[in-house]
Design a protein around this nucleic acid. Structure first.
Lengths: 121, 121
DNA sequence: TTCACTGCAAAACGTTTGCAAACAG
DNA sequence: CTGTTTGCAAACGTTTTGCAGTGAA
């Protein structure tokens, strides 16, 4: 556990949404100006494989990362692009029932306007 | 509708699984050796935007494309990497019930061994 | 003291773009 | 004929890699 890894994990933990490697790099530079992009990626990959953080790919852009490691689902606002976590605990069992097979895991992104953007409409 | 677009759509229609742009390019070259990668991408993007085909991003590799345009879900075999379509018609309503909001659309990839790989285990 | 990790630069990868020539409608 | 699409090459954004030097344990 290096200072760099601690910093990156801290940034992710304090964010209420998923961040791109670029955003993490920018925030990390504020506190540690010498940090390199490669280090950010090294750590994101290491922590993702260790199950400490979670990586997700969304259409048309860079991968995003969050500190939440337990299985969870995602809400993506197509208006502002914000990606937030949500827990649908019953869903896995529901899916297994529907496909008649064990589900190892699943990735779900629900496209729906976030409350702020819905209000503006 | 150019010959190139026809060819690419034909390749996708005849496949029982999702293909990467690279695979499509390779198959297209067999029938039309002068075709360019850019043309493959141009057409995939055009048809995706027109709703004729469907693009999906999976962790750790290139985007994949299929000829199926109606909303559907995905089964990904973590053993052999095969990506197939499945229809879970009741799921959208179920999700709306759970998040208490209208769902514009959603992307779902279920990780589960395909029948062939399951048998080998 | 050791070995994993850093920072840097360069490469790799998938995808997009600019442009002149070719083609479909 | 006109506008769209092609093929090519070069650029792009994101991610990974090789490597010498650094720092954590």
């Amino acid at each position: 556990m290096t200072r760099q890894r601690e910093l990156i994990l801290g940034i992710l933990s304090q964010s209420d949404r998923h961040l791109t490697a670029d955003e993490i790099f920018f925030l990390a530079k504020l506190k540690m100006p010498t940090i390199a992009m490669a280090t950010v990626y090294n750590n994101l990959n290491a922590m993702n494989e260790a199950g400490v953080i979670h990586r997700i790919r969304v259409d048309g852009g860079a991968d995003r990362f969050s500190a939440v490691s337990e299985p969870h689902d995602h809400l993506l606002c197509d208006e502002c692009g914000k990606l937030t976590d949500i827990r649908l605990p019953k869903l896995k069992v529901e899916l297994e029932k529907q496909i008649h097979s064990p589900v190892d895991s699943y990735d779900l992104v629900i496209h729906t306007l976030c409350p702020a953007c819905r209000r503006k409409k």
